[in-house]
Computed example of a mutant assay.
Amino acid sequence: MDQEQLRYSVAFIVILLMAWMIGFGVMLRLRGVETAAIAEGRGNVRQRLLIAGAAILDMYLVLRAPFSYLDQLVLARSAPQPLLSLFILVLGGLIILISQSGMGHSWRVGVPDKKNHVDELVVTGMHRISRNPVYLGIMIFLIGAMTAAPGPFTLFAVFISYIGLTMIISQEERYLEERFGDQYRDYKNRVRRWI
């Protein structure tokens, strides 16, 4: 696989993943689930910034396929192992998709406030392995992006995402402990935060 094929493959994977995530959110909204908890209050500024950063990274990963000169602008080098990069991206994407769909009606973008409660604590499926499998999938996906377009931009994306997701996880843990009490504390004692 050459670098051009890799760029187009990565763009295709990103487009599919974004289409799934948007479609899943729309499907839940049509079923009456208010998924956009990120729009509630001022407490979700970190989450909004992280989503904006993800949108910029996603645009880069898609647009670098037809506009390869973007790699020069962000000082990205050629991928040393294109097939490994694709494997990591696909693995991260699959973890995201399986985890998100396993959350069903409990999935939200952002930490809900009191009027948008999550009704059920999800402890099955991928959540038996990780308390945050969607975020784990995102981090694996980002590592795949970094190996597909190695450079300071993608390295920075991995670093900032880890810090941002860790802060969001802390917010979610406080919410879930308040919402589900001992049930969440028991779950937290059984299953690790990442893996």
Rank of each mutant, 00 (worst) to 15 (best):
Q3H: 12
E4R: 14
E4F: 08
I13M: 01
I13H: 00
I15N: 05
M18K: 11
A19D: 03
M21P: 03
I22S: 12
F24M: 10
L28I: 09
R29I: 10
L30C: 13
R31S: 12
G32F: 13
E34S: 12
A36E: 09
A39S: 14
N44T: 05
V45D: 05
V45W: 08
R46M: 11
R46F: 06
Q47I: 13
L50C: 07
L57N: 07
M59C: 14
M59T: 14
Y60S: 02
L61R: 06
R64C: 04
R64K: 08
P66Q: 01
P66G: 04
P66L: 04
Y69N: 08
L70A: 00
L73H: 03
A76P: 01
A79G: 12
P80Q: 03
Q81Y: 13
P82V: 10
L84W: 07
L86Q: 14
L86K: 12
F87K: 00
I88P: 06
I88D: 01
L89F: 05
V90C: 09
V90Q: 10
L91Y: 03
L94P: 02
S101M: 13
H105K: 15
W107H: 13
W107V: 15
R108H: 11
R108M: 10
G110Q: 01
P112E: 08
D113L: 15
D113E: 11
K114R: 15
N116Y: 04
V118Q: 13
V118N: 12
D119I: 04
T124I: 12
G125I: 04
R128Y: 04
I143L: 15
A145F: 01
M146H: 01
M146S: 06
T147W: 08
T147R: 02
A148D: 06
A148E: 09
P150F: 01
F156H: 01
F156K: 00
I160V: 15
S161V: 03
I163E: 05
L165M: 12
T166F: 03
M167P: 00
Q171Y: 09
Q171W: 01
E172N: 10
R174N: 14
Y175F: 14
E177L: 14
E177T: 15
R179K: 13
R179F: 01
G181Q: 10
R185V: 06
R190P: 04
V191S: 11
R193F: 09
I195K: 01
